[in-house]
Design a protein around this nucleic acid. Structure first.
Length: 351
DNA sequence: ATTCCACCGGAATAGCGGGATA
DNA sequence: TATCCCGCTATTCCGGTGGAAT
């Protein structure tokens, strides 16, 4: 019943976009100078999770490459590549010059190599750029005339707040493309398109797609995840199509799948912290450190735990309630799914 | 009002690991 | 093999902050 599973993967880029034509046009206009050997201003894609920022960036640049194949496109996810070195390294790697680059190469060697890799423009998509810890990497990229950055982040204000003055002024100019949440109708249409490509006809009904779209509350990533999970679940059970029951399983399943994956990615000490918080429900820092120290054979320093905790907050696994004294930690809301997803106060929603 | 104190997070530093180099 | 160079993590040190205690 699954014809092409790739279509339901997270990194799939459709050959045709649904409901994002304005955004695509804006971005490709911004990048147009690349067609005339010009240098575009940096481009920004802002919006919450699952609204197609990454997908549109990839799609638009794939289009651009069809017109101008000499343009090289590099995708860097700053969640993983969060240091200057790693960003530059992965760019070099993608343009195939990193063969003999290693950790012990002199400091500015990477930059030099990049500046010598000037046979044609390089568009660097920096996804989750608000997770970048060394913004000097952006400064570096800006200094390279043949490199055009495309920056993807949730919120403009937060992103610019994390920049130092140098970077902020360099990136002040540039095209901003903003993405709004999908409505249920839009998301249903997107899912229908994916289902059409991925599944045999009749595997999923329009009503079911709507249910999925509704449960995903505007987040295409979640929606596609649910569809994928439901399809594979139905296939495993040897059913000919997605049933109400498989859907029921798939909805919470897809919601927790991402979390489970990140929890598994934690190192032992971080996981102990996570468990302690999970067991306590809500816990003060002092108690948390204490329980942790008793539970582990070689406890890390206090300061290190604080680093772990901020990292876990970044991962959206835990939540820090309050500031300074009187702060408590707890797991981030296990989100019941249905109902309106109120994007409160701005404590963002990074994946 | 003033002093404490628990806690946060920035900066500097040490030590580890791993590839390069002589 | 010994040494160098570096990125990365954990650690040490410390200043700042605001609620609690006095």
């Amino acid at each position: 019943m699954i014809v092409d599973g790739r279509v339901l993967r997270e990194d799939f880029v459709p050959s045709e976009v649904v409901h994002r034509h304005d955004e695509v046009n804006l971005l490709s206009e911004a990048l147009e100078p690349l067609l005339y050997d010009g240098r575009p201003d940096p481009a920004f894609l802002f919006g919450p999770t699952g609204v197609g920022k990454t997908c549109i960036a990839r799609y638009t640049l794939a289009q651009l490459r069809e017109q101008e194949p000499t343009v090289r496109v590099v995708y860097v996810n700053c969640w993983q590549e969060y240091t200057r070195f790693r960003v530059l390294y992965s760019i070099l790697e993608s343009v195939d010059r990193a063969v003999d680059v290693h950790r012990s190469t002199p400091k500015d060697e990477l930059f030099d190599r990049l500046s010598r890799a000037d046979g044609g423009s390089i568009v660097v998509i920096l996804d989750e750029v608000d997770q970048l810890e060394e913004t000097s990497a952006l400064y570096d990229l800006h200094r390279l005339p043949h490199v055009s950055p495309v920056l993807i982040a949730n919120r403009e204000e937060e992103l610019f707040a994390s920049f130092d003055d140098r970077v902020r002024s360099r990136f002040h100019a540039g095209t901003r493309v903003r993405f709004d949440r999908y409505g249920t109708d839009e998301l249903t249409a997107i899912l229908a398109k994916r289902a059409e490509k991925a599944l045999e006809p009749g595997v999923v009904t329009d009503t079911q797609l709507r249910t999925i779209a509704d449960a995903a509350s505007g987040d295409a990533r979640v929606g596609i995840g649910i569809l994928r999970s439901a399809a594979y679940c139905a296939e495993r059970r040897g059913l000919g199509s997605i049933t109400a029951e498989t859907l029921e399983v798939a909805i919470p399943d897809a919601r927790t799948a991402i979390r489970r994956k990140t929890v598994e990615g934690l190192i032992e000490h971080q996981r102990v912290l996570y468990d302690v918080i999970a067991e306590a429900g809500e816990i003060e820092p002092g108690d948390l450190y204490e329980v942790y120290e008793r539970r582990v054979e070689e406890p890390k320093t206090n300061r290190t735990l604080r680093n772990y905790l901020t990292k876990m907050v970044h991962y959206d696994l835990i939540e820090a309630v309050g500031e300074r004294r009187g702060r408590t930690y707890r797991l981030v809301d296990e989100d019941d799914g249905d109902g309106v997803d109120i994007d409160a106060d701005g404590t963002n929603g990074s994946q």
